[in-house]
Design a protein around this nucleic acid. Structure first.
Lengths: 201, 201
DNA sequence: TTGACATATGACACGTTGTCATTTAAGATT
DNA sequence: AATCTTAAATGACAACGTGTCATATGTCAA
C-alpha cells in the first residue's frame, strides 16, 4: 500500500506521479519496469518515490487496485444489464477488456501476459470483491441462479472459479496473439457454449 | 536455447551447472533469480555462464523444457492407463504434480506462482506437443472421443483449452494456499464434475 | 613447432536499487 | 516575531547485478 505521504500529496503532484507510473507500466511489464524511469518522467527526486511507495510492486498494485475497483462497478453494471445472466456478463466483460484502447491497452497487455499468482488474485477480486466484507454475498445475490446447474452454495464458488479461469486465459490468448475483436469474441463465446452444455456426453 | 558450447560440456560439468541452475530457480522465481548465485554455486567464472546460455531466461527455459518433455511421456502413459479418458488423465496428472517432493516441489511452486504467458505456453506443450510436428494429432488419437460432448475437430481444441486452463489454475491454487493433497484433489475433482455435466440447466 | 580455432576467465563499465544524513517546509506555541 | 517541532524533500552513495570484451588457455591438425 502507498504510504500516508502519498495521500497527502496535492492533487496535481499526485496525478503527475500516477501518470508517470502508468506510463512505465504501460511500456514494460512489472519485472522490467524501473523506478529510475518513473522518477525521471515524473520529475521528482529518487528519494521522493520511496516517500510515497514501498517499491515498484507497491506502485504497480496501487494502479492495479484502482483498475479492479472500476471493474467491480462494471461487473455490477453488466450483471444488471443482462438480468443476472453470468454467462452474458462474462462475455460483455471480456469484450470490454479486449477493446480497451491506447495506453490502457498496453497496461492491460503487460498485465495479462505476466499474470503471476499475486496479480491474478488481485484481479480476480473484480468479480468477488474483498474477503473482508460481504461483497461476495452481495455479488452472488445479483446472479440469476435459476439457470445454473448447481445444487448448493459451494458449487457456485467452483463455477465462478471455472468461469474466471477460462475468462482470464481467453483474455491472455487474445493479447498474446493480437487477435481481432471478432475472432476473440467468437472463440470465447464458443468456449462459453461448451461450458454451458458440458464436456461429457 | 542453450549455446552449442553447453552441449559440448563434459557430463560432470554440465550436471554441476544444471544443478546450480535448478537450485537457484527452486530458491526464487525467475524474476528474482540471479546469475551471480548460479555461477557461485556452480563454481564457474561469470563469463562461462554466458558461454553456455544467453541469459537467465535461457537457462530457465532449458530447465522448463526438460520438465515438459517428461510431462509429455507422463501424459501419454496416464492417458493409456485410463483408456483414453481425458478427465481421469487430468486428475491423475494433477495429483502427480501437486505431490512432487523436495527441490522439484519448490521449482514447481516458483514456476506456477509466476506463470507468465510465455511460461504457460511452454508448459501447455505437455499436453499438446510442439506445433511443428504431428504430436497434437497423435495425442488426439489416444483420446477416447466417444465420451466427449463435441461435434467436430475444432471443438476438441476448445475443450482442451478449457481443461488445461482449469487444471493450471487449480495447481496454482494448490501451491498458493499450500493445500493438502486431499483437499486439492477433492476440489479439482469437483470442478471436473461440474465441467463434465455443464454449468447451465 | 606452429597456426587456427574453440573455450575459459575475470575485470570492468553501466545501470538499478534502497538508504540516510541533511536540508527545507509547514505549523504550532509562546 | 522568534522559536520549536514535526513532516516532507532531496540527492549522493554503497551495494549489487548484468553483459561484454580483451586476454589467456587449451586442443588438434598440419
Amino acid at each position: 500500500m502507498p504510504k500516508i505521504t502519498f495521500y497527502n500529496l496535492s492533487i496535481e503532484k499526485r496525478e503527475k506521479l500516477i501518470n508517470a507510473v502508468k506510463q512505465e507500466f504501460s511500456r514494460v511489464p512489472l519485472s522490467q519496469a524501473s523506478i529510475s524511469n518513473i522518477v525521471k518522467s515524473a520529475r521528482i527526486p529518487r528519494g521522493s518515490f520511496y516517500q510515497y511507495f514501498e517499491d515498484k510492486e507497491d506502485a504497480f498494485f496501487y494502479l492495479l487496485e484502482e483498475r479492479v475497483k472500476r471493474n467491480q462497478s462494471e461487473v455490477y453494471f453488466l450483471l444488471n444489464k443482462h438480468n443476472g445472466d453470468i454467462f452474458e456478463m462474462m462475455i460483455a466483460f471480456f469484450e470490454k477488456v479486449i477493446t480497451e484502447q491506447d495506453e490502457n491497452r498496453n497496461f492491460l497487455k503487460n498485465l495479462f501476459l505476466n499474470m503471476t499468482y499475486e496479480v491474478e488474485h488481485e484481479f480476480g477480486r473484480s468479480f468477488k470483491g474483498y474477503e473482508t466484507n460481504q461483497q461476495f454475498v452481495q455479488f452472488e445475490s445479483k446472479v440469476n441462479k435459476e439457470i445454473l446447474h448447481i445444487s448448493n452454495q459451494d458449487e457456485f464458488k467452483y463455477l465462478m472459479k471455472i468461469l474466471t479461469s477460462v475468462l482470464l486465459r481467453s483474455i491472455i490468448e487474445t493479447f498474446s496473439k493480437d487477435q481481432s475483436k471478432e475472432d476473440a469474441l467468437r472463440n470465447f463465446k464458443l468456449e462459453i457454449t461448451l461450458l454451458k452444455r458440458g464436456l461429457k456426453k
